[in-house]
Amino acid sequence: MNLFRPVVLALLLSVGLPALANSGSGDPRYTIQNPPAFAMLGDLLIARPLLLVATVIGTGAFVVSLPFTALGGGVSDAGKALVVDPAKATFVRCLGCVGEGFERQE
């Protein structure tokens, strides 16, 4: 799984970088990504299924490692890294976007 995340991240960045060039809105506090069709198609057919598999595998790994992470006090960090982050990338992110659909800029 250590190799899986960088590969998926590289895929998302290579597919989504053209979308960053077209992003923008009238409100300077928000960035709205508007990805092209090929980025959406690549995300739908390649990235989302891989991220769904990563979420399922991460959930299994989290459950198996739960007794040990509880002893070490890192349950929240392990849960975030193994379950929440892949699930967020799978279900919260807009289709073809690199990040979440609406990101607030500070």
Rank of each mutant, 00 (worst) to 15 (best):
F91C: 13
L44G: 07
L82N: 00
T59P: 02
G99F: 04
E103C: 06
L20E: 01
F62S: 02
N2D: 10
A19G: 15
A61V: 06
A19V: 00
I46K: 05
T90P: 07
F102K: 06
E100D: 14
E100C: 05
G16E: 02
V8N: 11
T59F: 06
A37Y: 01
G79Q: 12
L13T: 11
L50Q: 01
V83F: 12
P36N: 04
L3M: 11
F102Q: 06
S23T: 11
S76V: 10
Q33S: 14
P18M: 05
G74H: 02
S14G: 10
L95T: 03
V98L: 02
P86A: 08
D77C: 03
G60C: 13
G96T: 00
A87V: 03
P67T: 10
P18E: 04
A10S: 12
S25V: 15
L51S: 03
V83L: 14
A37C: 00
R48K: 14
P49D: 03
D27Q: 08
N2Y: 12
F102I: 07
G60L: 15
A54H: 03
A89Q: 08
D77F: 03
N2R: 11
L3K: 14
A70F: 13
F91E: 15
G16A: 12
L17S: 11
K88C: 07
